[in-house]
Structure formats: C-alpha cells, structure tokens
Amino acid sequence: MPERITPTDVAKVARLARLELTPAQLERAAGQLDGMLAHFADMDALDLSDVQPMTQPYPLQNVFRDDVVVEGLDRDEVLAAAPVAEDHRFRVPPIVGLD
C-alpha cells in the first residue's frame, strides 16, 4: 500500500473524478483516506506473487446477443427527462478544455 495520501493526491483524484472539493474538504478527505489505506496495508503482509487476480465471481465466457434490431426507447420520453434538450438532442454547455 502506498505510504501516505496527501491533500495534493486527493485533489488530483478529485479532478479525475470530476469532483470539486474545498481546501477544508480536501484536508478532511485526505485524513480519512489515509486512515483507510493504513488499515488496508494489512494485505501487504500476504505473499501474492503466484496468485491469479479474481475478476469474475461466476466464470462464464462467450455470452452473445443475436444481431437483431429491437425497438428502442421513445425519444420524447427520454428527452423529457434530460436536464436540457434542444432540437431533439441533449444540450450541454460549451465543450472546452476537454477535447
């Protein structure tokens, strides 16, 4: 487990997750996350060198759909639930610093 998690680390993570935290919140979160990671360090005692990661609780493979069109959702019902819609499309503020 990485040593300590600082408010700077938390700020970087928050940015990745598109969360906006005040300096006070960053401090608080850093403290709590640091406490957790300290607890999680218990697993560093384990020798996991030849252990395969487990990603599937119930191993299945090759699950497919047939390539057949099924009637989708009603556009008006969906757009009615959108924060902002215009001209049958979803409207968002200018996309900058993203692309």
Binding site: F90, P93, G97
Partner: peptide, 24 residues
C-alpha cells in the same frame, strides 16, 4: 451521473465546470 442525459444538473460556463458542480 454527469448531468448530461438524465437527473440533476448544476449549470456552469462549460461542460467540465458543469460536471464538477453537478457531481459535487
């Protein structure tokens, strides 16, 4: 949950700021 297609949105000057404001 990004304020684009459903649910809550807190508006902002650009999409990135909107994400942050909405999710926070």
């Amino acid at each position: 949950f990004d304020g684009v297609r459903f649910g809550m949105r807190v508006d902002a000057a650009d999409t990135n700021a909107m994400y942050m404001a909405t999710r926070s």
